[in-house]
């Protein structure tokens, strides 16, 4: 396919024309929505196929650990069942007390399920695309959680049929959070050099243990209180730091995410 001088100029004009489109954000947004609509089924297929292929390899490499993991999961499951029974009891008690005091639940949320139809292809920003947008009632700054209710991120751009979700592992993400047990509050952000997320602004004299849960505090008015962000993986209390640097292992497995829930205020 040869390109003549005339075609070359036409292409250059086309490129400049595309740049000029920036002055009309509505057109760029509408064209984005159109392309997502066409391309999203293909990309969903690519993501799911890729997950299956890499998943099969992972299974092959981890066969020896499966028995051990199975035992651990059984143990965890029985612990969780016990906790669930206790929680159900507490919920009933809470409901009864609320009814007695005539004190309704605040900040009730509804969940909209959505599929991931795209992932970042460029650079190092961590974001995903979901197949629901403004026409489904989604809007900017709505919190997004995984199927197992771990924090995933928030909507940063809502189109008509699609929304862009920034993950909590993105370098610009900030989440008001706290340590579940001792309720110490701080900010979860990304350590760009280490490529990990950490809880900042927790005083050095506090005792935090490895494996403790880090949950959202609700102070930023974006993420509802109580969503699990992850668990404490490491604590850096070196002298050159003013606060503890609590490295978090995120609860959500971002590589394998296929569906998410968007939290909408009722």
């Amino acid at each position: 396919m040869k390109i003549s001088r005339k075609h070359f100029i036409v292409l250059l004009v086309l490129i400049l024309g595309l740049v000029f489109l920036n002055f009309f954000p509505n057109i760029t947004k509408a064209s984005g929505n159109f392309i997502f609509k066409i391309f999203s089924p293909v990309q969903k297929l690519f993501i799911s196929l890729g997950n299956k292929i890499t998943g099969s390899f992972q299974i092959l490499f981890s066969i020896s650990d499966l028995a051990k993991e199975n035992e651990q999961l059984k143990q965890k499951n029985s612990n969780l069942e016990l906790q669930l029974t206790e929680l159900n009891e507490l919920r009933k008690e809470n409901e009864n007390l609320r009814n007695a005091l005539d004190f309704p639940l605040k900040n009730s949320l509804v969940y909209a399920m959505s599929s991931i139809v795209g992932k970042n292809l460029q650079g190092t920003d961590d974001w995903i695309l979901i197949n629901k947008g403004t026409k489904d009632g989604l809007d900017k700054n709505m919190a997004v959680v995984s199927g197992d209710f771990y924090l995933v991120g928030k909507i940063v751009d809502a189109g008509k049929d699609f929304s862009k979700v920034t993950l909590i592992t993105d370098r610009n993400s900030m989440v008001s959070a706290m340590v579940e047990n001792n309720r110490n509050e701080g900010l979860v952000q990304k350590d760009a050099s280490a490529g990990k997320i950490f809880l900042d602004f927790v005083p050095k004299n506090e005792t935090i243990e490895l494996g403790e849960k880090i949950i959202t505090s609700g102070m930023d008015n974006i993420y509802p209180k109580g969503i699990i962000i992850g668990t404490v993986q490491n604590i850096d209390s070196s002298e050159n730091q003013l606060f503890l640097k609590i490295i978090i292992s995120p609860g959500a497995d971002f590589e394998k995410l296929e569906n998410v829930f968007i939290l909408k205020s009722k």
């Binding site: 489109l21 795209g118 189109g159």
Partner: peptide, 8 residues
């Protein structure tokens, strides 16, 4: 696709 703030 990237929903870049600036087209082009």
């Amino acid at each position: 696709y990237s929903l870049n703030n600036y087209f082009g």
